[in-house]
Design a protein around this nucleic acid. Structure first.
Lengths: 328, 328
DNA sequence: AAGCTATGTGTAAACGGTTACACAAAAGTA
DNA sequence: TACTTTTGTGTAACCGTTTACACATAGCTT
């Protein structure tokens, strides 16, 4: 790899001059510029970001921490972040935290050691303090904290909406599957749904499940044993909903006639299920992109009106819920 | 952030000594070590990777280029890579190429500018030359090239297997959905399946589709119009298979009685489909992990027996193919 | 006791950029 | 013309590490 010194020699100027024409900073004679650019071209010179980053004390790298890229909800978000940052020449250093505090800390540390300009993180509640004394901008994604800017979606409305959908469409024995309570957004949607259900005159049962397929399957199996009269299920996410759907089909229960089911997230394969799953949509890609936008504003020290951006969710009506007209 | 100089001052030694005790290189008196470590502890010193990387001309960063993290096949692979590298303290810089040459080149360049120690890439055929004159190790993932080490799966056996499955289970009017021919592994599995089918005395039709849901849907709709007598479909991947499944169900065709369907990849939601999709499994996570392992060996200049690692695929028998006993 | 080797430590030069500063020449102003 | 400002360029310090080298001292050998 050619260095700035090679270019300087080739062009017969000093390194300072090369640096100036490369960055368009300071003065440089038109003719000099040409000579330098020719040398750059000839040697295929690309400035070493590491050296630059060392002097400037900041790189063109952004750290991204997500719980688990293997969970279909997150790739969309990651892509949103990447696509947005990419336009501005920023690159992503990426890490899966598995919601584990140690891993988060480890990543934060190494990100810092690499002089990242900023970080975007879906971090667990308690780990927020890890970000507290950083002197680089951080934006939370899909999670919130008072002190940090954040982009997330309207879990409360989402939970409420899910409940409303089943209620409006006539379910009266509803099981609400609660995800892990430590995961704030999941807990919030649960609470909102629960509240909404309680105000209606229906039977409500709560069951616990992890966010994974396996967790969903065990949960759902139990569900039908304990509450065979169930005619409505609100799942904590689409994966668990898919598990429920499978169990429902296996038991020969008609859906949506005998039982209604609603998921959460609207991850891609949700439309491919049979019957296609009704769900509450979170705009994952958009969330990622907006978090990136916010981060860049922070980096550029632009003044920010809003630091907490709550994106709207929506009900995606498919075929595991009844048409509103045809209430039972 | 504390620097090595701060630590040196705090400990009352020179920076060289601090560096030596941090790295366990050269001599250092036991007492000195203690003093230094105490200072490190006190100041919470973490060496700046950027400076280190500048001097050493290599960082602890590995570049990863994948076509699209949003395609469920890749997160598994990415996770395999990450989990493996993470143990050795390497971090990932990540980029989506969308199979586009420019994007690949752009990422390769910036990765290089950041002094990555190595790269793992799922790159398009022609772009291989981009890696040619690099002086850092590269390993291809899910793709192959003569000159570069690679980890991939046995597409030929996979394609053949898919064909064999339908054949052995009695399909005689088979449609083979071919993915984009530019994507080598997809093309290979197609060719292998085609060959196998041709040797049998069955009707074979070929249709084209992209690898996306949308592409699959359009393709499949046409499929049934053009070849209503079809009793077996081999899809180029699971997503397209899912689209096919949906169309089959919509048309009220019985599966697997009237038609058999087999996918490719065994991405996670494949088991959640109804009926669960029979497919050819590629060990995506394992592929990622092995590519990482290979890369690390290269980085450490370890001698390598095999540079091209072909991982086995397997038939995952679910319910869109008939039991072998109950051939029609 | 003299001459080794092994141990312990510091100084300073890299690594590849950016930029403050100095200085010179050109251009503008009175 | 003499002075000021603008333009153009180079020198060298700096960013935070690592390491070659020099040097000093301790511990062994005879």
């Amino acid at each position: 790899m050619a260095t700035i010194r090679d270019v300087a020699k080739e062009a017969g100027v000093s390194v300072a001059t090369v640096s100036r024409v490369m960055n368009g900073s300071g003065y440089a004679h038109e003719d000099t510029k040409k000579v330098v650019m020719a040398a750059v071209e000839k040697l295929n010179y690309k400035p070493n970001e590491v050296a630059r980053s060392l002097y400037k004390r900041k790189s063109k790298l952004v750290g991204l921490i997500l719980p688990d890229i293997t969970n279909p909800f997150f790739p969309e978000m990651a892509r949103g972040v990447e696509d947005y940052l990419q336009q501005f020449g920023y690159r992503l250093i990426f890490g899966n935290s598995d919601e584990k505090r140690d891993k988060e800390i480890e990543y934060i540390d190494t990100f810092l050691q690499n002089n990242v300009v900023g970080m975007i993180a879906s971090t667990s509640e308690e780990a927020n303090e890890n970000f507290d004394n950083l002197d680089i901008p951080v934006v939370l994604l899909d999670r919130t904290a008072e002190k940090l800017p954040a982009v997330y979606s309207d879990q409360k409305t989402g939970g409420k909406l899910a409940a409303r959908v089943l209620l409006d469409r006539g379910s009266t024995n509803i099981v609400l599957i609660r995800g892990p309570v430590e995961i704030k957004p999941v807990y919030e949607r649960y609470m909102a749904a629960l509240e909404e259900l309680k105000q209606a005159k229906v039977n409500v049962q709560v069951m616990d499940s992890s966010l994974t397929l396996q967790g969903g399957q065990t949960c759902v199996k139990q569900l039908f044993e304990q509450y065979p009269e169930t005619d409505g299920i609100i799942a904590c996410n689409d994966i668990v909903a898919a598990a429920a759907l499978q169990e429902i089909l296996k038991r020969g229960i008609r859906i949506p006639e005998d039982i209604q089911l609603i998921g959460y997230d609207d991850i891609s394969f949700t439309a491919l299920l049979h019957p296609p799953l009704s769900t509450i949509r979170q705009p994952a890609y958009e969330m990622g992109a907006q978090a990136a936008e916010m981060l860049i504003k922070r980096i550029n020290q632009e003044k920010m009106e809003v630091t907490h951006k709550k994106l709207p969710v929506s009900f995606v009506e498919r075929q595991t819920t009844r048409r509103k007209a045809e209430k039972t």
